[in-house]
Structures are given as C-alpha cells and as structure tokens.
Amino acid sequence: MSGVYVVVEHDQSCFAPASREALSAARNLGETLQEPVVATLIGEHIPEFAALCEEYGVVEGVNLNDPKILDYGPELWGQALAELLVLRNPRVVLTVGTDRGNEVLAQASARTGVPFVANCIDVNHDGVWNMTRLQWGGSLLEDSAVDSPTIFLTYAHHSMDDAPAPAPKNAVIDTIDLDLDPILARTMVQDRVTLTEGTTLSTAAVVVSGGRGVGSAEGFASLEELAELLSGKVGCSRAVTNNGWRSHADQVGQTGTRIAPEIYIACGISGAIQHWVGAMASKNILAINTDPEANMVTKAGYAVLGDLHEVIPAVISEIRHRRGIDS
C-alpha cells in the first residue's frame, strides 16, 4: 500500500481550477507522509495532463480510461477509483471538495468501504489519520480521527494555495484500461444549459445585499439601482429568499453563494453566522444597519448606523451628483 493519488478534476477535458489546488495539496501531503504522489485522470487522455503534473512537481500519473466514460458521471468516476484501489493499493486518494470532488470520493468510498472525510484543511498520520475538517460550511472546525490503512479525503475548496513547483524531470503517465459496468452510465451528464455569461454573484467586484431590514421585494429597487451604478450584483439573506422577495440565486451564505467582492455592502442584514460564512471572503465590508450591536456591524470594517431606506438613496444621489448625472 503506497502513494497519494490525487484526482485531477476536469470538465470535458478542460482542467478545473480546483485541480491545481488539489495537486498542490497532494504534493504537501506526499511530503508529510513520505509517499510518492500520483496524479489521476479519469476518462479520455488529455494531451496537457503530463505538463500539468510537471508544473506541480508530480512526475507520475495514471489515466483511468474506459470508452464508456464520455463525460462526467458520478457512478462511472467513483467506480473507476474503486478499481484503482484494487489495482494500485493506494494509501490516500484525495481531491478538492468541489461538488464533483465530494461526490466522486463519496461514490468511491461507498463502493469500497474505505472511509471518506470531506472538506479537510489539515491532514496527518500517526498510526491513525488525524484531520481537521469543516463543519457548518466552515463556521466550525472538527478534529477527527480515522483508524483505517487507506483513506479517501477532500480538501476544502479554496483552503489550499495554488503553489506550482516545477518538476525536475518529465512526468510518466500510465494508462489503465478499465471495463466498467455499462449500467453506471445512467448517471452521466446528458446535456448542458448555459444561463449566464459574464459576471455572476460569486465573481462580482461589488455586491449590494439586502436582508429582512429591506422590508419587501419592492424595497430592493434602490439596492438594484446602486448595484447597477457600481456595475455590481444584488445579493440577499435567507430571510429574504424565505419571504419570496428574491430568488435563491441571489442568496449569500452557507446554503447560498460564497462571494469575494472588493466591497460587500450589507443593508439590513444582522450577520448570522450562516450568512457571514458566505460573505467573509469579501475584501471590504460596509454594513448599513439601525442596530449598532448587529453582528454584521461589529464584524464589518466599515459601518453606517441608520435606516437603509434613507442611506441608499442618499448614496445614489451623491454618485449621480459626482458623475454629473441629473436625478
């Protein structure tokens, strides 16, 4: 039993940005455990695979291939890793905890009985596996111990630096031809629909967000206007989506979107931990709230105490004034 096998995530042969984090994390864990790192590609060979491995100091790769793997499919990908376990007897199989990463390792774990621990931020081994992992979407941490020779794990997305470290020599890629049960193709992607292009809530530089304090769906008109003036996006809290004031696509937080704008303007939002965890990666936070004790106010870098329905229109007219637009 040896080797840290790292699954390199891709979508239709296009490497996911998270795969770079995964390779960086695997290299670190390989050094800690004194184990070789083997990059693992599921599906048809991708010509750039070897170069990607080399960029991260990884000189060994395997390509788990089966002509039935025409696209992403949790069962096909999970079973491919289950077969890797039998063929190569790895000590660790890991990737980054994206939607697909967690799903594929859970599938592989279910198919092999090897324990799976999701969203780790720290892993080591001293007779048993010791990991620190995220609970509550990162609002709380759990130290866990797992007594098992082999372990499947994911590192929490965005918890590892993307740290290239060129390899001293060319990577050698082995191809392993699999013959998976064709029934597993029942969960392969059948089609894709593109809804948005350009800026999304998760990539916007400015997010103007409203909470219960906005009071109604109509109350969002001024937030919309401000967001538009700043080429930003409108966000909201779960209280707002639960009231049907806005679509869930706008929700920021543990069960919504995680954002990382240059500035987050949080209006009438108390800052519950589940909301905060989605907003805390913002570079600057401005809270507008009537309550000086609100968590959002005490945690924000900037705050304005007052009624958002007075503050926001005043900000809009100040911007219009400076830009020489008549209001």
């Binding site: 010791n130 924000a300 900037y302 007052g306 005043a314």
Partner: peptide, 22 residues
Amino acid sequence: QQKIRLHQPEETVTETQILGDG
C-alpha cells in the same frame, strides 16, 4: 471515524470604522 473535538476557526478581529449616521 471518531470525532475528537470541535473548535472555532481563527477569527480576524476588525476594528469597525463608523462612517456616520443616516
């Protein structure tokens, strides 16, 4: 899998700058 302990993530304490009222 055995839970050993729960703990809080590290928090960066920010000094809030109040920009004003209303």
